[in-house]
Design a protein around this nucleic acid. Structure first.
Lengths: 323, 323
DNA sequence: TTGTATGCGTTATCAT
DNA sequence: ATGATAACGCATACAA
């Protein structure tokens, strides 16, 4: 490995001069600087990250933590983060699994964006207490080193529910996410509120898991007790796909017998037959905003909690009933 | 930040004793060791990664480089890598974009798995020449510090093409991936070979981009010049979805007018109507094998090039013609 | 068994 | 404008 010491030797200067030259410090002459840079290139010099980090106590790397790489990989969200971070001189790495949590306290990251139930609130608060900067996308958590950038789940779920009610539906199912999911719980709370406001109607909740299989299972149960048009709010699109699949080969049709709304507006929802009504938001913007707030937090520039706005996308998966 | 120096002070021993104790070196008494560990826990000690790396010249972190985070295609692949690496004491981080390439030469990674056309062959060879260990999943590259773990594209494309021919098809389209894609080129070569072997039949290639839009564009063109059943081998499933979409609202049907085969066996291919014929392989196994080889390479245990086997999944997207 | 001392590659402070 | 030198936190060879 070639270090600044080698460069110094070859250029006939001291290591401090080399360091200055490499970092563009104006203290060193244009002349020597140019010579040093040339030698550095000649020797294929690359600075050692560990040494720089040890000295400067920063890595210029941000970690995004996901529960798993599978399923919805949050492609656009991550892309949004990456672009924003790169613009601001940071690199992004994606991490998953409890093993990788060590990277935060060990100082390999200047900050982290959390979308990962494998982190407990306590653990995050501990890291924050040690001075690590965090942005959480999947929970509410109060600490001066933590900022929240959250989806407006409440608005989304309210839009969806009221849409179903507006279409005349009197029988409503909510298919939830897994136990303890922040998104699921927030959405569910909004549904309950909207249902309560609406007054007399049949309402039931079915526990799901945010995956296709649990959507299909929910559909099966709904079919079994079918006694007229039912509205089904799947708390994410993935489960709505499961509902569609479960109806294949049965006499029941989406938009006719089961009226389905999803959440997330994932790519294929536009291509589903009938087209899936869902709740839309910009993943990219979400990621970019999270990144922006994290950088501000690190720079101590007064980062603030943010909310990502959502909108309803209507579709033929929901038909009118009643009158 | 609390360092071993602090622990030493609190425990009334020297820093080397602390270091030994923390690393489980048997040179230190059970007694003192226990006391030191207790103090460490008490003080919430966490080792500093930069310092450890600077000294040991290893990070125990592997980087996987992707061209982009978008498209949910690599979830299982990454999961396979992660699980295998974790088992072997390594952590995995996912990186994307040329900016992040620096992590490799700067020594933040003990090795890298490459699936990223943003890396040129020259750049990879340069890193390898510097002693960095690489596994490439998207090209053939010869160097003692590089091992290849490649999909058996040739077998897959041959299976797909021969399947179409077996079903009596005489008119064949291949919809390709982007210019310079290794997978696309390998698959295409195999198609050409199979076509040539088959003798007299109509064959045309349409340049695609591995995304839905280019699949749809290809379908439009095929429809325009339609003059009887046509077989369409989309070199990945994503483009096959595009073909399906493009046919919506036209009188043409998949499995009847256009006979489609894809490649990758992505999740939704099983749910498409009609079910998509495609080429299957285990992403998870691919990732695990890549990880395994990389670790071997790092440990200088004679890693070897590997091949991931594939198989054909038949589907109603292809019907019989002729006789 | 424990302590002392050195160096990993940088940055940065202080002399010169 | 440039050089000598001291950290940064840790591992380890060697001394005691």
């Amino acid at each position: 490995m070639v270090s600044i010491k080698d460069i110094a030797k070859h250029a006939g200067v001291s290591i401090s001069t080399v360091s200055y030259a490499l970092n563009g410090n104006p203290k060193v002459t244009e002349e020597t600087s140019k010579r040093i840079l040339a030698v550095a290139k000649e020797l294929n010099y690359v600075p050692n990250a560990a040494a720089r980090t040890l000295k400067k106590r920063e890595t210029k790397i941000i970690g995004a933590f996901l529960t798993t790489f599978e399923g919805a990989f949050y492609g656009e969200l991550l892309q949004g983060m990456k672009e924003e971070l790169n613009k601001r001189g940071y690199d992004l790495v994606i991490c998953s699994g409890t093993q990788s949590h060590r990277m935060l306290p060990e100082g390999m990251l200047d900050g982290a964006i959390i979308l990962d139930r494998l982190f407990s609130d306590e653990e995050l608060l501990l890291h924050a207490a040690r001075g690590h900067k965090l942005v959480v996308l999947d929970r509410e958590l109060s600490h001066k080193n933590i900022v929240q950038v959250l989806l407006d789940n409440k608005a989304g779920a309210t839009f969806a529910t009221e849409y179903l009610l507006r279409q005349g539906h009197k029988k409503l199912y909510a298919v939830t996410g897994p136990e303890g999911s922040f998104d699921s719980e927030q959405r569910l709370a909004a549904v309950r509120q909207a249902v309560q406001r609406a007054g007399s109607l049949q309402y039931a909740e079915i526990r799901g898991n945010f995956d296709k299989a649990s959507g299909a299972a929910a559909a099966k149960r709904i079919i079994e007790e079918y006694d007229g048009p039912a509205a089904v709010f799947c708390l994410n699109d993935e489960m709505a796909i499961g509902v569609y699949n479960a109806l294949e080969g049965t006499p029941y049709r989406v938009g006719e017998h089961l009226h389905v709304v999803g959440f997330d507006h994932i790519d294929i929802s536009d291509y589903m037959q009938p087209r899936l009504a869902t709740v839309d938001y910009s993943e990219r913007r979400w990621g970019a905003l999270a990144a922006e707030q994290l950088v501000k937090l690190i720079a101590c520039e007064g980062a603030e909690h943010e909310r990502i706005y959502v909108s309803l996308v209507e579709g033929e998966s929901v038909g009118r009933v009643g009158e």
